[in-house]
Design a protein around this nucleic acid. Structure first.
Lengths: 207, 207
DNA sequence: CGCTAACCGGATCGCCCAGTCCGGTTCGTG
DNA sequence: CACGAACCGGACTGGGCGATCCGGTTAGCG
């Protein structure tokens, strides 16, 4: 790989990240190319499809989240670590429209992102179980619930952000209240792995 | 207005409602026209713009919600009525992708819808205050919070619906837990009318 | 029944955007 | 320094969709 090609690749990834963060996933490839200082053909040379580019950017963000989870696992106070993780996950999505939108599609996303996300949930599960044992989290919360509710809060927050900056913290606090132990048990089971897998297999290639 | 014109108008509204409900707001006008059994020109003769059509359909749905709120106000047990209202609001959005998407844009929607929505929130406020006085609802909940959190739950539920039907009830139950009294007070204020108005004035005509 | 104004609908326009093509440019090696 | 392979980028294509145009049709009044 020639040096200029590598440079362009980095520029494209950075530009895409910034563009998606600011304008959501519907920003045009031409805009991204312009921001990166290259032509559209150069973008498509590295990423056969716009979706591939989205995927690459998302993987970075999900990896970043995974790092935060790992840090929480090692923290002195794991419950505090988990809370901070959740807060960071929402904040990341609120300040990155593209990530927020991508995670909304979440379930049906690309294999690579999906894999990274699964790994992240698996790590989360450890923290969740520990928090439940220590009585910080309601016992009927499943790890799979977390990405769902965090994305829900983030989406509401993201829309509010331009008109009421920081309002997402209000709804994050409500979310924490919902997760506290002591409430009557949930009457509906969480989505299962099988359901998610079936949906994924079914709509491979949609959109 | 000629009889056939009236008939077509009804057909268009019905078709639009069904199409938007099933496929979201991004379904093409051509699809709607075909379902209504008319040409696209006929659609645009009644609704100058696709947005106008969306607006008309939404108004109907919001009016329907308002009726439910009115019913709750008159119910024997107002708290039970409010709960049922919230449940119905989520269910309506989960089973109507178009409505769900339209309410997500909510704040910046069209004047007519916005007006109907404001009226609905004003009515809700009565129920909220009463529920708070009776100790069913946390005291720091503002009426404006309700459409926000209800839409958030509905959106998550709508995405889950095809793969885990009814899963939204799980998150609705969590929401109710978050709204219960007894939690430490919220540290961030709710969005204000002024913020909403400013945003609305600012981006009139966007999209 | 006949006539006209109202109405209809498919073909068409203009625009946007993902993705492709090809003539020109640059890297980096010998 | 020279040369070829790798790389570049802007012009172009194709398809989709909102919106418009216009020749044909129909309602419903007199």
């Amino acid at each position: 790989m020639r040096a200029d090609a590598q440079r362009n690749l980095n520029a494209i990834l950075t530009a895409a990240r910034e563009s998606f963060a600011a304008g959501g996933l519907e920003v045009g490839v031409a805009d991204i190319a312009k921001r990166a200082g290259v032509g559209t053909a150069t973008v498509f040379r590295r990423f056969a499809t716009k979706d591939d580019l989205i995927c690459a950017v998302c993987e970075q963000s999900v990896a970043e989240m995974a790092e935060r989870v790992a840090a929480a696992e090692a923290a002195d106070d794991p419950w505090e670590g988990l809370r901070e993780c959740m807060r960071a996950a929402i904040e990341m999505q609120v300040t990155d429209r593209g990530l927020c939108e991508a995670l909304s599609r979440g379930i049906e996303a690309y294999p690579a992102v999906r894999e990274a996300h699964d790994a992240l949930v698996a790590r989360l599960a450890v923290l969740v179980r520990r928090a439940q044992e220590e009585g910080h989290l309601r016992a009927d919360l499943e790890p799979i619930d977390l990405p769902i509710v965090l994305n829900a809060v983030a989406r509401a927050g993201a829309e509010l952000e331009p008109i009421a900056p920081g309002a997402w913290r209000r709804y994050f606090q409500m979310l924490l209240d919902a997760l506290r132990p002591g409430a009557p048990p949930l009457e509906v089971p969480a989505p299962t792995r099988e359901q998610v897998d079936a949906a994924f297999a079914g709509e491979q290639g949609a959109r």
